[in-house]
């Protein structure tokens, strides 16, 4: 059972303001729907592989492009209020 405190903790982790009452009902409903009964399955190691290629260093996006969608920027940096 997910409690009101759990919802508060999850909202803090997710950095999200939510309607806590609504979220409490939703998460408790989903919690039971998402239970997976694994008793019949063979979970032997199936040799997990990583599909990612090796990283290569390439030129970056121009600084002005990177800043073009920021609400505030100054001297080539993102600017935030203190």
């Amino acid at each position: 059972m997910i409690t009101e405190n759990d919802v508060k903790r999850l909202a803090t982790l997710a950095k999200l303001e939510v309607d806590e009452k609504e979220m409490l009902i939703y998460l408790n409903e989903m919690q039971s729907k998402l239970m997976i009964d694994c008793s019949d399955y063979d979970f032997a190691d199936r040799g997990v592989f990583c599909p990612l290629r090796e990283d290569k260093v390439l030129p970056s996006m121009p600084r002005e492009d990177a800043l073009s969608n920021a609400i505030h920027s100054e001297n080539g940096f993102f600017k935030l209020r203190k």
């Binding site: 997910i2 759990d6 919802v7 903790r9 999850l10 909202a11 982790l13 997710a14 950095k15 999200l16 303001e17 939510v18 979220m23 939703y26 998460l27 989903m30 919690q31 998402l34």
Partner: peptide, 24 residues
């Protein structure tokens, strides 16, 4: 927190919370 709370719709907020829950 406020930006995300105000700007995301309800379905998105639910899925973020559910995802945070199953990873917690």
């Amino acid at each position: 927190c406020k930006t995300r709370g105000e700007m995301f719709g309800n379905e998105v907020k639910k899925r973020i919370m559910l995802g945070t829950f199953v990873l917690s």
